[in-house]
Each structure stands twice: as C-alpha cells, then as structure tokens.
Design a protein around this nucleic acid. Structure first.
Length: 416
DNA sequence: CGTCCACGTCTAC
DNA sequence: TAGACCTGGACGG
C-alpha cells in the first residue's frame, strides 16, 4: 500500500476499525523482523492514527482504570507512546480476529475483547520499518496532501537547491520536497500536464509561486469565461483549471484518497477502481523507461532532454533465433544484483519501450514486455495496437492513445 | 524450474 | 550510483 494516499487510507482504516476498541498487554513483534522492539505494555489502551506524506503514526494511549486507586504495575505504561511507520513496498494494517492474522504480520496489538482481535502491521517484503517513540522523519518535507501550503513554500523557496538539477520525474520522488509522491503518482501527475518526465526540474517548476493562484474559484471562473473566446486559449485554460505542477502534486493524490478502497494493491478485490483511475502508470499504450535510479517511469510523448541515454549501441545485438526479434537486449535488468559476476553477460539496454498488449495467439517472444498488474477480475476486450512501438520517440502519438486507452487495459492473458 | 518485476528507502564504495 | 534488503506473482522453457 505504499504512496501517500495509501498511507493516509491506512490511518483512516485504523481510526475506523479501532474506534472504541481497548487493547491490552504488550506489543508483539514477529521473530523475523529487524525493526526495534516496542517497549510498551498496558492493561488497557487505545490506538489512534495519523499520516503525513509517506509515514503513519500510531498513538497508543493508556486508558484510565476504573479502579480508583489502582497503581500502575511496574513496566506498565502510564503515558502515551507514538510509533512512526514507513511502509516500504508492501506495508499495510489489518484488523482481524486472532486466527485470521495475515502472514507477514510483523507487529501486533491485541484487543482486550473476549474473542480477541488483532491490529497487525503486515509487510510481506519487510522493507517497511517503525520507530517506537518516533517522530516524523525530520528530513522529509511537508505532506503533499495535508500540508499543501507548507509543501508549496518548501519547494518554491528551495529551487536553487542542487536537488532540482535532476529531471523532474526523479525529483518528484525526493521526499525532502515531495513527501508522499511515489512511482505511480509521478507518472499520473506529469501525464496530466503533459510534462516530459526528463526535463530539468527547475525548468518545470520555475515561475510557480508559493501562493496557489488556482485556489480561488473566482480565478477559475474567469478563465473559463475567457476560454469561450478562442479555441487556442481553451487548451491552455483547461490546463490552468487543473492547476500547476505543484497543485497537482496535491490534488492527484487526494483523488486517490477519495476513491476510497485501498488504493494500489493488486491483490485487493477493490483494486479495480484504482486501476480504472490510472491514466498512465502501467497503462497499455504508454511508454516506459528506467530513470537514473532504476525506477520505471511511465509516460507518453517526448521523454525530455535528460532521459537516460544509455548505450543505444545495442542494436548489434539484434541477433535472434527466429526472424525479427526486437532486441531482447533491451530488457535492462538493473538491480539484478545477486550473482552479478555471471549476470554480466548480456548487456541489457534501457530503451524506451511501449507497453503494447500482445495478441493472445502469436507473439511469443521478445519485445520487452512489461508485465501487467494482475487485474482484480476485469475482463475486457483487448485493443489492437501495432506492436513494436519502440523507437517511436517523440512523435505525436499520444493523443490518440490517450483518448482511447481507457477502454482496454487488461492483462495480457495469454490464453494459449 | 528460472527470470523479471513490483507502491521504497538506506548505506557503503 | 550501484547494491542491499525481501517475498511472491506472472511468465517462459
């Protein structure tokens, strides 16, 4: 569940599920977890949650005992404790009966109820972490969703920071300035504004003020009025109605919050709404490329001037068994760390790739094929797209794709 | 069976 | 700027 919206939804989930619930005893950690023990135990306490960017804070609050003079036993907490969580790639909270505690539940809080229930921090990959008596990480900036004004000011007032020398798509993952933005959000945000992902961040941001001019309804209305005059201004106005880049860093994540559900999580039944909301990330017809940190950037149109060049010499590699093969070389493994000695063989490239749905029947081999996210259970007709879109650099392809793709994003079900 | 990929940080050369 | 840290699903053979 991991970008800003999912973290916030997690906090709402905890507050809703644990409202009125009394917990008891020690906080329990799984054997395998490397995160710190949580030195808190209490006969009766409550749990509340809050989020900020990509962190969630749980507050454990001891409940006053009915027994008037009851003394707190040694080791029992009398004061509240905050625990700050980061979710890594797979963290989330679940509140279940004791026998339905999910696999990979690494921190657990047990209720005092008769059939006891358990609030679990579940994290399959264990990239997540928590800090007892923790605070929001000081190096992380203001929340893009709930500290919008501060977030904006923090970016605008630090544009001279060398951090903004990087491509905009990479800077959007810098939590010092964009606390809450993650890989799907950066793609969705830049896509909405048609900003090439690899333009210098400072270029994409300069000129934006710390005041959000789109905030005012009056302003928007004026623009709308104005738009009736000419067709050319219309385009621009439509864009302005949405707001500038910084505003979208706020509003786009909030759209996900308002979708409800659990946001990004392919395993979820209610994942289909989220998937339908995506316009670019992992969508058929969109292009993708690895950024300088090895993260996949989804976009359409021009990649921008700072796109990783990478060796494009790979062409030589065209070899292949059956006829045409598209270089297969361009799979780019990236991060394939283990056993790198052996992995050295193939040069792997990193070229722009278009996410093209394959036909069920043919096409078996090559073609860098991004895998699709397992769909909840949507079954729709697949749309035909010319394969091999590779090398279709900055053409104006996207408009058509952009308007149609909605109808067909599906998994490549390779029926055999 | 093996390879590749995934919503993110961290820290070591 | 690479690895490291992890598990597991989708595919390919």
């Amino acid at each position: 569940m991991p970008e800003g919206p999912e973290l916030h939804l997690a906090s709402l989930y905890v507050n809703k599920m644990c409202d009125g619930v009394v917990f008891t005893g020690p906080v329990r950690k799984s054997e395998v977890s490397k995160s710190p023990d949580v030195p808190f135990t209490c006969e009766a306490y409550r749990i509340t949650a809050a989020s900020r960017g990509k962190e969630v804070k749980l507050t454990l609050t001891p409940v006053k005992s009915d027994a008037p003079k009851q003394r707190v036993k040694a080791g029992q907490a009398a004061l509240p404790m905050d625990i700050v969580f980061r979710f890594g790639m797979s963290g989330y909270f679940r509140f279940t009966s004791e026998d339905e505690v999910p696999k990979h539940a690494h921190l657990r809080f047990h209720s005092k109820e008769k059939p006891c229930r358990v609030l679990s921090f579940v994290d399959t990959r264990r990239f997540g972490s928590w800090q007892p008596n923790g605070t929001w990480q000081p190096v992380r900036g203001p929340c893009i969703m709930f500290d919008y004004k501060s977030f904006r000011e923090n970016v605008v007032s630090h544009l001279s920071d060398r951090a903004f020398d990087r491509p905009i798509c990479e800077v959007l993952l810098n939590q010092k300035y964009f606390n809450g933005i993650g890989n799907y959000l950066r793609a969705e945000i830049l896509y909405r504004l048609n900003i090439p992902p690899f333009v210098p961040a400072r270029t994409a941001l300069e000129g934006l003020g710390s005041e959000d001019v789109y905030e005012s309804d009056k302003h928007v209305k004026q623009e709308i009025e104005h738009s009736k005059t000419s067709d050319t201004t219309k385009r621009k106005v439509v864009k302005e109605e949405m707001g500038d880049l910084l505003r979208l860093c706020h509003t786009v994540p909030l759209e996900v919050v308002h979708l409800g559900g659990k946001g990004y999580d392919p395993e979820k039944a209610d994942y289909s709404d989220f998937k339908a909301w995506l316009k670019c990330y992992y969508v058929d017809g969109m292009k993708s490329i690895r950024d300088h940190n090895g993260r996949t950037m989804w976009f359409t149109g021009d990649p921008g001037p700072m796109a990783p060049k990478d060796s494009k010499s790979k062409k030589a590699k065209k070899r292949t068994k059956t006829d045409d093969d598209h270089d297969y070389t361009n799979k780019k493994k990236l991060t394939r760390s283990r056993s790198e000695g052996t992995a050295k063989k193939k040069e792997v490239k990193k070229e722009i790739v278009t996410n093209t749905p394959k036909k069920d029947k043919v096409v078996c081999s090559k073609e860098a094929r991004p895998k699709r996210i397992q769909p909840a259970k949507v079954n729709r007709p697949r749309r035909e797209i010319s394969s091999t879109a590779r090398s279709r650099k900055s053409s104006s392809v996207e408009s058509t794709e952009g308007s149609q793709r909605r109808s067909s994003r599906v998994t490549r079900q390779s029926s055999k």
